[in-house]
Nucleic acid binder design. Structure first.
Lengths: 205, 205
DNA sequence: CGAAGAGGTGAACCGTGGTTCACTGTTGAT
DNA sequence: ATCAACAGTGAACCACGGTTCACCTCTTCG
């Protein structure tokens, strides 16, 4: 057997793959999905077009991975914000603020991830993105329900509704590049908390 | 002057145009946006491909009109449900129910209008669709705020959040063709009303 | 009835961008 | 050194579907 890829080569491979994914993510953040052509991404990554297909069977698969990575990164940020023993309502308020501010800070990227038209195969992966958020919220809601802070109810449904409310409320501002972040944050925090906070525990204006 | 289109011919024209729009709407309801090719719509309408372009400068314009019509029809349905002197909270509950049930009754159509990937020109028209809903809700919310039934706040933001919440909460069920309509309706009614109902007026479980 | 202009047709065209593939360069065991 | 196998290349390919256009047909009016 004249050839077998060694560990060093494996690392090379992985690095090249990483380079391509990074280039795709950067392109997405900069010009959205529409600007992320295979040729463009390859050039940005400093490789040939064909090389992309050494690592991904199709463009859809590449973009799907990009969506998955972004979802993971975003969820990690929110999850990392949880302070020990913090009331669930405060956690929710903090998440809403982070969600809104992060989106407004990178509007093109946020629009691409939340609302930009993508082909069906990638759209399926966008569900992962939203599911990741929804699951995070659902877990917190269940936690809050157990503690009596949150009104009882189908946590998954509530979480989906929250994610939808935040997304939709952002689409307008993202499209118009109009910020007014503070009012948006405050309005959405109030909306979300009113919707889910236990009635006995209402303690904030 | 040997020829000038007469009234009869105008009517013919309009009827043909209508036929095309109807075919496009039917195709959208049946197979979604992805299935609505110009050739297919033309065949369905019983006209030649080129004839479509006698009435619409491009496919986008045709689909834009389709979206606009659907939006108008949906909004008319909801608006027509308002009973005189009915509390705003009841109106909202009825609207939520109608929104959910109508969507579940025609899942393909609903998905196409709410969430299916479409090209940017049509996506812009989808904003009209959502705006139409949001404006309807916003008007009702302002009405309720004036009467003290609804918590004060940016009615447009609240309306967008409500529309987003309803849409997102439907995407899952629509994709899986899973109904469970009653629970969905109840959960979303509770969510929406909790979010916007004035705290002094809380009067329902 | 016949000329002139509008409506109607659908096969062919074409731009786009994902995908391929014959070729070159590189790696690793013998 | 040698060769097999694999990574890398990028110009060419091709599928797709919106759009066009040369050719008919039909309507209107002198």
């Amino acid at each position: 057997m004249p050839y077998r890829p060694t560990e060093r080569t494996r690392a090379r491979l992985a690095a090249a793959r990483e380079l391509i994914v990074d280039a795709a993510m950067a392109q997405l953040a900069e010009g959205g999905y529409a600007s992320a052509s295979v040729v463009g991404v390859a050039r940005r990554a400093g490789v040939a077009t064909g090389s992309v297909y050494r690592h991904f069977p199709s463009k859809s698969d590449l973009l799907a991975e990009v969506f998955r990575r972004c979802a993971q990164a975003e969820v990690d940020v929110l999850r990392g914000m949880a302070a020990r023993g913090q009331p669930v309502t405060e956690r929710l308020a903090a998440w809403v603020e982070a969600f809104v501010r992060r989106a407004l800070a990178e509007p093109v990227r946020a629009y691409a991830l939340i609302a930009e038209p993508v082909d069906p195969a990638v759209e399926a992966e966008r569900l992962v993105f939203r599911r990741a958020y929804a699951d995070l919220f659902a877990t917190a809601l269940r936690d809050g329900q157990a503690r009596g802070e949150i009104e009882p109810g189908d946590a998954d449904l509530l979480a989906a509704a929250i994610v939808g409310a935040l997304s939709e409320a952002l689409v307008g501002p993202l499209a118009r590049r109009q910020t007014g972040a503070d009012a948006l944050v405050a309005g959405l925090q109030h909306f979300v908390l009113s919707a889910v906070r236990s009635h006995e525990h209402a303690h904030q204006a």
